[in-house]
Amino acid sequence: MKIHKEQAEHYIWGEVCDGWYLERDADRTIIQERMPAGASEIKHVHQKAKQFFFILSGEAVMWIEGKDINLKSQEGCTIQPGIPHQIRNESLGDVEFLVISTPSAAGDRTAM
Results as ranks from 00 to 15, higher is better:
I3P: 00
E6A: 13
A8I: 09
A8K: 08
A8W: 08
E9N: 11
H10M: 12
W13Q: 05
G14A: 02
V16W: 04
V16E: 09
C17L: 09
C17R: 08
W20H: 15
Y21S: 08
E23V: 14
E23H: 15
A26I: 05
A26E: 07
R28K: 09
Q32I: 05
R34E: 03
M35I: 00
G38H: 08
A39D: 05
K43L: 13
K43N: 10
H44M: 09
K48C: 06
Q51A: 11
F53A: 04
F54A: 09
S57Y: 03
S57A: 06
E59Y: 01
A60G: 14
V61F: 06
V61P: 02
I64G: 01
I64S: 02
G66S: 12
G66I: 12
D68S: 15
N70S: 11
K72T: 06
K72W: 05
Q74M: 10
G76W: 08
T78E: 15
T78L: 15
T78K: 03
P81C: 07
I83Y: 07
H85P: 03
H85E: 06
I87K: 03
I87W: 05
I87Q: 02
S91H: 11
S91T: 14
S91N: 07
S91K: 06
S91V: 12
L92Y: 10
D94K: 10
F97Y: 14
F97D: 03
P103N: 09
A111R: 10
